[in-house]
Structures are given as structure tokens and as C-alpha cells.
């Protein structure tokens, strides 16, 4: 469904992503794990169209989407929940959700209901400004906002970052639930343990390269991974 081939991305002189290739199967949860600075965010931002690739191709549903602008990528059905949530603090919760559906002109009330059923707290706070929510609520809002575009594939950049363990568990169970509804998920995490537990397929990134890949359940028992990322 989704495939990256030989992707290179530079920032000025810095090679942030060097020749990575991977694919995401429809309906699966795929995770990209790795230390800080490995190039995970850069990869997602390139897919989303925020950063231009130096070379390589990105294909989605049989169509080349390399170099397209962010609005067309969203239009094709790929959304990014950015690192640090990036909700709009002076828009209300409801407006934040509505703006997620910016490109749609059909009725969004069903999707709004769905998001509210996934995150009942957002419904209670729909008239509050986004900036007044707690970190966990903001992450829920960021995910809900992305769902409002009705994506085929949703990319999440470190959704567990800075959240309390209990909230992290909530977020991961929501990720599984969204996936059950048929949305393909590309998940970037430093929290390798949680990510590997939910992932069908996992890729490990180190300094711009993919150094290891395998089923989530396999990598979780891999000795190198245990040492490097699971702190065991």
C-alpha cells in the first residue's frame, strides 16, 4: 500500500536520512523506532510533504507522491500527528477538530461523533481553548484532529512523549482501536517497548539508516534491541 525506496533527505549539509527503504501493508501497524536524532521525524515530515527529499521515491496506493505539497498528501489520505502535538492553542477543541477536516466538504458529524466516542474527554471540553488542555488531552486532540480528515494511513510522531505511563497506555489502546477500524498506522516512537508490543512490523533507525527490521514480536526478544532500546 505504501512504499519508500532509497530515500535520502538533507538539511543543508546534514544528511538526516540516508538511503532508507521500507513498506507499510494496508491495515497494519508499522513502527519506526530509534534514538533521538536518528531521522525518524525527518522521514515522517518528508512523507507529509513538509520537507523535500533529495532523492528516492515514495509511493502510496500505487501512485508516486514524492515532492507533493502537504495539502495534496492529506487529500490522498495520509495525515501526520506531529511531534509535540502542535494543537492550535487559541482555537477551541471543536475548532481544532473541524480544522482537521479542512479539505473535506461532506458532512463531518459522523466523524466528530466517532472521535468523541474514542475520546469522551474532548466532548466534555469541546468549548475550551486547545491551549487549556493537559498534555494527555492535547495528544488525544492531536490524534482526533488527524482522524477528522478520514485518513487511510495515519502517521504519529512520538505520541507518548512526555506523558504519564497511565496516559501512555490509554494512547496505545486507542491506537489499536483506530487500527481495528481499518486505519493503517505508521508509528514513530522512542518508547520502543510499547511500540513493539502493538506493531505488526518494526524498523530500527540509527543515524539516518535502517539497521534492523522484523516483526514487532520478534524484535522485542532480540538481544541487541533489548540492550539498546529496552534497557534490559
Amino acid at each position: 500500500m505504501f512504499e519508500i525506496k532509497n530515500l535520502f533527505v538533507n538539511y543543508g549539509g546534514i544528511e538526516a536520512v540516508r538511503d532508507i527503504s521500507f513498506s507499510v501493508e494496508e491495515g497494519k501497524i508499522v513502527t519506526l523506532i530509534g534514538a533521538n536524532g536518528a531521522g525518524k521525524s525527518t522521514t515522517l515530515r518528508t512523507i507529509a510533504g513538509l520537507v523535500k527529499a533529495k532523492s528516492g521515491t515514495i509511493e502510496f496506493m500505487g501512485e508516486k507522491i514524492t515532492g507533493k505539497d502537504p495539502a495534496s498528501i492529506v487529500g490522498k489520505g495520509i495525515t501526520l500527528v506531529p511531534e509535540g502535538r502542535k494543537i492550535f492553542p487559541d482555537l477551541t477543541v471543536l475548532e481544532n477538530l473541524k480544522i482537521g477536516a479542512y479539505l473535506r466538504s461532506d458532512d463531518i458529524s459522523k466523524d466528530l461523533e466517532w472521535v468523541y466516542s474514542l475520546f469522551p474527554r474532548l466532548k466534555e471540553r469541546s468549548w475550551q481553548y486547545g491551549g487549556t488542555l493537559s498534555g494527555g488531552e492535547q495528544q488525544m486532540l492531536a490524534v482526533g484532529r488527524a482522524l477528522m480528515s478520514r485518513p487511510k494511513m495515519i502517521m504519529m510522531d512520538e505520541p507518548s512523549l512526555g506523558l504519564a505511563p497511565l496516559i501512555v497506555r490509554d494512547i496505545f489502546s486507542i491506537i489499536k482501536e483506530i487500527n481495528k477500524e481499518g486505519v493503517t498506522i505508521l508509528l514513530v516512537e522512542q518508547n520502543a517497548n510499547m511500540a513493539l508490543q502493538v506493531a505488526d512490523m518494526a524498523y530500527v533507525m540509527e543515524t539516518g539508516r535502517i539497521t534492523l527490521s522484523g516483526k514487532g514480536s520478534e524484535l522485542i526478544d532480540n538481544e541487541d534491541i533489548k540492550k539498546a532500546y529496552l534497557g534490559k
Binding site: A48, G49, L50, D69, P70, A71, V74, G75, T79, L80, P82, K86, F88, P89, D90, L91, E95, K98, I99, G100, Y102, L103, R145, S149
Partner: peptide, 22 residues
């Protein structure tokens, strides 16, 4: 809708683009 987009863009170009706003 355009007013909401104006408020969003005046806050954050990049995230606005991720919403599909030109």
C-alpha cells in the same frame, strides 16, 4: 472556514499545512 484558517495560519504555518490548508 477561511477565518478559522487565518487564525490557524497566524499561529503555526507548518501545522496548518498538515491540516491541508494552503
Amino acid at each position: 472556514k477561511i477565518g478559522m484558517a487565518m487564525r490557524a495560519v497566524s499561529r503555526d504555518f507548518e501545522t496548518s499545512q498538515l491540516m491541508g490548508i494552503k
